[in-house]
Computed example of a mutant assay.
Amino acid sequence: MSHATPASDRNDQPLTQAERTARAEESMVAAAIELLNTVGIRGTTLVAIGEKSGYSRGLATHHFGSKAGLFRTVLKRMTAVWTEQLLRALDGRTGVEAVTAAIDAHLAHVLAHPDYIHATNILWGAALDPASGFKPNVAEFMRIQRRSVATWIRGGQARGEIPPDIDPERMAEQYYGGLIGINNQWLVSPDFDLAVAYEDFKRNMVRLLSATHGTPGQTPSNTEEPQ
Rank of each mutant, 00 (worst) to 15 (best):
162 I>E: 05
66 S>C: 06
125 G>H: 13
185 Q>V: 10
154 R>K: 13
164 P>E: 10
183 N>R: 07
117 I>H: 06
83 T>L: 13
128 L>R: 15
157 Q>E: 01
190 P>L: 08
118 H>T: 11
163 P>G: 08
141 F>Q: 10
123 L>V: 03
180 I>L: 15
177 G>W: 13
182 I>C: 03
144 I>R: 11
49 I>L: 04
89 A>D: 02
66 S>H: 07
142 M>A: 14
182 I>N: 01
60 A>Q: 00
55 Y>T: 04
176 Y>F: 15
120 T>H: 15
149 V>Y: 03
70 L>G: 03
58 G>A: 15
87 L>T: 09
61 T>Q: 11
123 L>T: 04
160 G>P: 03
122 I>M: 12
148 S>W: 12
152 W>P: 00
123 L>D: 07
127 A>V: 04
157 Q>L: 02
124 W>V: 03
154 R>F: 04
141 F>M: 14
193 D>P: 04
159 R>N: 10
97 E>Q: 09
90 L>I: 13
114 P>G: 07
91 D>A: 12
162 I>P: 00
69 G>S: 04
154 R>C: 06
85 Q>S: 11
97 E>S: 02
81 V>I: 12
129 D>I: 01
60 A>P: 03
113 H>K: 11
55 Y>F: 12
189 S>C: 12
145 Q>G: 06
184 N>E: 13
73 T>P: 02
157 Q>V: 02
149 V>R: 04
96 V>M: 08
50 G>P: 00
144 I>C: 08
134 F>S: 06
120 T>S: 15
113 H>R: 14
161 E>P: 01
129 D>N: 13
66 S>N: 09
145 Q>P: 01
128 L>S: 14
69 G>N: 08
159 R>K: 13
138 V>E: 00
179 L>A: 11
69 G>H: 05
69 G>D: 04
64 F>L: 02
113 H>F: 14
80 A>Q: 10
158 A>V: 10
187 L>G: 05
92 G>T: 05
123 L>N: 07
120 T>Q: 14
125 G>L: 11
186 W>T: 06
156 G>Q: 05
184 N>M: 15
109 H>D: 07
90 L>T: 05
127 A>K: 10
138 V>K: 08
179 L>K: 09
197 A>Y: 00
197 A>R: 04
88 R>P: 00
67 K>H: 12
114 P>S: 09
67 K>P: 03
57 R>S: 02
169 E>H: 09
69 G>Q: 04
102 A>I: 03
102 A>E: 04
174 Q>S: 12
180 I>T: 15
62 H>Q: 06
151 T>R: 11
151 T>A: 13
99 V>N: 00
150 A>C: 05
178 G>T: 06
161 E>R: 11
175 Y>H: 14
78 M>Y: 06
58 G>I: 03
173 E>W: 06
165 D>G: 04
159 R>Q: 15
135 K>Y: 14
